[in-house]
Design a protein around this nucleic acid. Sequence first.
DNA 1: CTAAAAATATACCGATTGGTATATTGTGAT
DNA 2: ATCACAATATACCAATCGGTATATTTTTAG
Lengths: 196, 196
Amino acid sequence: MTKAERTRQFIIETTAPIFNSKGYEGTSISDITAATKLTKGSIYGNFKDKNELAAAAFDYNLEKIRNGIVSRSLGLKDPTEQLLVYVDFYADVFEKVVFAGGCPILNTATDCDDSNPMLYQRVRSALVEWHRHVESVVEYGVKKSFFTSETNPGEFADNFLSLIEGGVLLSKTLNNKRHLMSNLNLIRKMISEIRN
Amino acid sequence: MTKAERTRQFIIETTAPIFNSKGYEGTSISDITAATKLTKGSIYGNFKDKNELAAAAFDYNLEKIRNGIVSRSLGLKDPTEQLLVYVDFYADVFEKVVFAGGCPILNTATDCDDSNPMLYQRVRSALVEWHRHVESVVEYGVKKSFFTSETNPGEFADNFLSLIEGGVLLSKTLNNKRHLMSNLNLIRKMISEIRN
DNA sequence: CTAAAAATATACCGATTGGTATATTGTGAT
DNA sequence: ATCACAATATACCAATCGGTATATTTTTAG
């Protein structure tokens, strides 16, 4: 890894939580130079513009979460266990997520209007991918008779994602993990109710 | 209503959807003067600063939703019906809410970091009030034996709010009402399951 | 109708915004 | 060690930011 690549990575890692907590408009180049102790020249030598850095920071924030899920899912066959990975993951990392500014999907989806199509497209793709993953796990579970045939995978995924995102929002805003835990409890109940 | 009061109200109503969709930082005084066709002098003659206007706009956005709920709840005694008011309300006004920039609670809670304590305090209060209302309706239902005694009002309110907020987020971001409707369906099921 | 007061417009302020051209420094292969 | 080039720093740009002092217009009370 060359010097420039290391610097680029350093900038991304340093500014990712800033973008996540202050938003795209709310994060200034001064914020970035202050946090990295670098100068504008260095920032713009490594990134075309603020937009490219914001996109890289979003990708980084997202990848960290995705890695957390994927690494816990390795080798799991039982769809119930795969769904519970999310429940355990968010119960475990909630404090860390809040410290890093909250859920990047929730933040970016709310922060971005159509005036920032690059970030908006990214957050839409992330949401679709997440939805499709949960949906496909449930579909698999139905097909293999882990789950009852009346189960609607798409609706289940809607409820699943919303309870997690809504729980993070409530718990972060009200500074109380209990709200998220209530939702994770409901998810556990939902899973047990569709099991054969 | 004096001229100034009318102007003040006009400014609030005109800028409320702008603040809601672009956020506090993202909304500039130029945005405000452009939308109202007024000048800075007029804006600052009616509001101490941008913060005061943002707070008034948030209050206005919130009040519109609250009025929608309250007006549909008038005279209702059955707690089941009171809870269903929310379900029907969000099914009805979803498009309007999206057009106005989304749910102000969701947007403002995400937009505000601790750097804007005035707005942050407002959104927290709104969230606490909403939570308490749902919780108290369920508590009343349990006490009057509409709902089973095993029902946990606090947890129910957590799930309830999260499903609505999460559904609005998903449906707005993915531009498909279906996600919200899935959640409203689950809320209906949750209500029927706690009924005696 | 008039005069005082309130509301709005104009013109400006310093600070900060994102971005760039250029100078300086640091790196790495020979 | 040197030299070419990559990487970083410095200094600057026009535009915009939130905000204000003052001039002008409009409203309102007598």
